[in-house]
Design a protein around this nucleic acid. Sequence first.
DNA 1: AATGAAGGCAACCGCGAACTT
DNA 2: GAAGTTCGCGGTTGCCTTCAT
Length: 286
Amino acid sequence: MGRSPCCEKAHTNKGAWTKEEDQRLIDYIRAHGEGLLRCGKSCRLRWINYLRPDLKRGNFTEEEDELIIKLHSLLGNKWSLIAGRLPGRTDNEIKNYWNTHIKRKLISRGIDPQTHRPLNETTTITTHNMTNNTAKSTAPKPAATSAPNELDFRNAPINGFISATPSLEFKYKAKTESLEEGNCSSSGMTTDEEHKYPSNGQGLNLELSIGIANDSTQLSTANSADSKPLLHHHHNHNTHNFHFLGQTMVAKAVCLCWQLGFQGSEICRNCQNTNGFYRYCRPLDS
DNA sequence: AATGAAGGCAACCGCGAACTT
DNA sequence: GAAGTTCGCGGTTGCCTTCAT
């Protein structure tokens, strides 16, 4: 019972254990003991964040800094998505780097790290943006959790664009409902919500707009036909070209299993994210 | 040299999603 | 559809190091 491991059908054995497998397990335990007294979750984290051979380590470059800032302005605290576009960097690493370096850097530039707008403008945002800034905001949080007075300004203009998404709470709800209904509407909002949080015709729902549409070659908001698309996406087999904010990023989707050396199948359904992006990517020419 | 504050980062925690039985 | 389990994400914590006094 339970969720199957990633790519089980591609390259892991199932069914009865063979004598050879038994012997290899015995040999391994003889050599290394019964275990590390670590749960799988902890091992996974250690591997992903520290032991993976393709990790870059070392300081972030200025280019990486700027890319992270741009991606954060588009995606918010979607660290895994951001990390997917920085080869060799982990979501945890980027998250820590953001909190310790980039936030300060932006503040010193007079830019609000949450809104990516000038600091003196953020106080004028209307109250409907003043929701908690996490997807888990619906649940009451203990007092010790992060910045209780932080505001969600993601509805505010970002680098000249305006997000159609009123809040993550709505966004996630909409996403779930859209998936369940097979409805790929761009805003995912109900009529009431659309009324309440108008997109000004320039809206861009980041969550849904960047998802990989099966046959689309260009993504833009459905409810803002005249707005310039912030992000274009070209999809050909497993190759994805992303163009946004004047930058081009080309990545070939691969799953973790590929990174681990199981190159027989480069992508598996378990490694595909629900929003259409792949969790693991490698540069085309690697 | 001792001490406390601040910074940096790896690891943990809780939750929702995904999946199987 | 319910229950049980694993996976993966984002937020948070806590330890270690560095800096300031």
